[in-house]
Design a protein around this nucleic acid. Structure first.
Lengths: 228, 228
DNA sequence: CGTTAGAATTGATGTTCATCAATCATCGAC
DNA sequence: GTCGATGATTGATGAACATCAATTCTAACG
């Protein structure tokens, strides 16, 4: 593994608190690999060989069933993914592909499981990471069950804007068709949903959205103070 | 805490592997409480005070947002719930109520967090429990996004039948309105979905369902070998 | 037993969203 | 620049599902 990105990866919540010595074991057993865009990293049902850490680029986790498919998560750097499959040593429930050219740290799954057992700080971080991931999924499921499409989009926009500094502007980082799939709707309906939000305080220009009237957008989208 | 149910709780995956001494700490700091039916145990947004273990009865986890509400999980004994909120010490994302009269072991959240840090076996079990819970949520979300209502019901029936011994029969343990909410549909549409499944190998009589033609039911419901 | 309240079902209607089809942008290649 | 491919948008239509309104069923209780 190259030296340049180690500090950044070591700063991840997952690896931050662990013993230096064990971290060294993890890193020296791993390798950083470059992938072209649109490459399948692994598929649903496969046995997990590696914990993945997206260092650079953009990746997508998606699920398929009976011919249909849906985006489950868009992974931005620097983040680890599919930790749950790795620690349980059970088949992937999602497939993954790169969206853009990406660099990914591949940590052998068996190594993760072994070091986790020996380093309590890593185990605690893993536990926390899984708990947070679980909570994210609870949010996504309630979002899906309780809100209709334009509301979901409104809350996604509000969420993105907050993460990007609360300046009233936000960039949509992925293609709209991906965002549509992530929100559980078709690209056509995403367009129409943006149209609806246009009447509720949102201005949109390509991949840039601007919250012109936050009160109106919030009144329409009804963000939940606890969940959102 | 009474003696009678201790062995059963100690056998739970969560508590099974931990040091006897620490388990004693957990148990002696906890108390078993009896609740009447339809009692709210806690509400979304509250700070988690206790890890709950349903010893006897039936409970429901549900989420609300903007006036609407939906069942997230039906908890059967003996199971712990809301572990993720407890270990992260973050507000509940779901509310809980008893469905029938229930006995619940209440383990102080702070005690759980403390003992988890000191007992690696408990931490490992917690990690595993959270990973499995996460995977369940992934399944539920893909189910919701990729399948339509009658298919979801078909897979629930197939799943229940498998859990109940694979005898071709299954009991629906909760009211149909709850099952409807769990599957993200209205009670009216649950009835109609049962009607549809009646033409695909399922016989239904009150709360009992019988799989008359498994091949037909599976052809219709398309269970996923990985996920279901 | 009948009574009655809540649940389940059934039918009629309306809303939300997907699908299909066409057109309009955008962007890289040459 | 022009071309072509792909994504985004817009409109028309249809399918899935929710809602509303009656009944019918079920079970607890006097």
């Amino acid at each position: 593994m190259r030296v340049a990105e180690r500090p950044e990866i070591a700063r991840l919540p997952l690896f931050r608190e662990m013993q230096e010595e064990q971290r060294e074991r993890i890193f020296s057993g791993s390798f950083l690999q470059v992938f072209p865009p649109q490459l399948t990293l692994f598929e649903l049902g496969q046995h997990p060989d590696f914990l993945h850490v997206l260092v650079d680029g953009l990746a997508e986790l998606y699920a398929t069933s009976a011919g249909r498919d849906t985006t489950m998560r868009i992974v931005e750097p620097v983040t680890s993914f599919i930790l749950a499959a790795v620690v349980t040593d059970m088949p992937y429930l999602m497939s993954a592909r790169t969206l853009t050219a990406s660099r990914i740290l591949l940590v052998p799954a068996a190594l993760v499981r072994e070091v986790v057992k020996q380093d309590c700080a890593l185990m605690q971080a893993t536990m926390r990471e899984l708990a947070l991931a679980y909570r994210d999924m609870v949010r996504a499921l309630t979002d899906m069950k309780l809100r209709q499409s334009a509301e979901r989009l409104g809350n996604l926009v509000l969420d993105q804007e907050r993460r990007q500094g609360g300046t009233g502007r936000a960039q949509l980082r992925a293609e709209k068709r991906l965002i549509a799939s992530l929100l559980g709707m078709t690209p056509e309906n995403l367009s129409r949903a943006f149209g609806v939000l246009g009447q509720h305080g949102l201005e949109i220009d390509g991949a840039t959205v601007r919250i012109a009237d936050r009160a109106a957008l919030e009144a329409f989208s009804r963000p939940d103070p606890v969940r959102d």
